[in-house]
Design a protein around this nucleic acid. Structure first.
Length: 202
DNA sequence: CCCGTGATTTAT
DNA sequence: TAAATCACGGGG
């Protein structure tokens, strides 16, 4: 029904990939069930130059190794002692850039999502944040490095081919990176304007 | 506003 | 070896 995004989609700069991911469908297969959501909010992280990126100044560690690989793989990290966050690696091998997936509109497997998201009372609380969507879709460090083009547990399906009209995309500073000086203010967060499932209202 | 929570990073 | 940090989420 829906074809996956192919390798070439990911082998581009992080801003282009961050914008093009909006409206596409993230799919997680767990215990034989499909859990899926449309991507409605992303952030681009631009590698060695970017003070907010885990690869700032060329840092290369066990944690961020996936960011150094070729585009089209997952980079999943653990933070604040309890949350996971999912990134889509972009660019060529050796170019450590990625796109943080910040929010989804859940569309398949909401029953299973509610079971994992104990506190959620409404659909808008299931996947409206990077930690929330990882909890809802059972994404943790075991999925770090997953090939989104070839793997069977986590992938992205093409919903739209044409670029969205620019007026439908909100653009602004990234969330939670106030420590990053100049880079805290760069317009590297992208979302579907007015969408109920973004992590913060416009 | 505040706090939980622990891996990772940075300072000593 | 020790201390600080953190691309967050939930409660008040």
């Amino acid at each position: 029904m829906f074809a996956r995004l192919e390798r070439d989609f990911y082998l581009r700069n992080a801003v282009t990939v961050a914008r093009a991911l909006l409206g596409q469908r993230l799919v997680r297969v767990v215990e034989g069930q499909r859990l899926a959501g449309l991507i409605v909010e992303t952030e681009a992280y631009l590698g060695a130059q970017d003070a907010a990126a885990h690869t700032f100044r060329g840092r290369r560690t066990a944690r961020n190794a996936s960011m150094w690989g070729p585009g089209g793989h997952a980079y999943v990290y653990f933070t604040y002692g309890m949350h996971y966050c999912l990134n889509v690696v972009a660019g060529a091998e050796g170019v450590p850039v990625a796109v943080l997936v910040r929010a989804l509109e859940p569309v398949e497997g909401l029953d299973a999502m509610y079971r994992r998201r104990t506190f959620a009372k409404h659909d808008t609380a299931l996947c409206s944040g990077p930690g929330k969507l990882c909890q809802a879709l059972a994404i943790d460090r075991k999925l770090d490095g997953t090939d989104l083009v070839a793997g069977q547990e986590l992938f992205i399906e093409r919903v739209r081919t044409r670029a969205l009209p620019a007026r439908l995309i909100g653009v602004g500073p990234r969330i939670g990176v106030a420590y990053a000086g100049l880079w805290a203010h760069k317009p590297l967060r992208f979302w579907l304007r007015g969408h109920a499932h973004v992590s913060r209202r416009d």
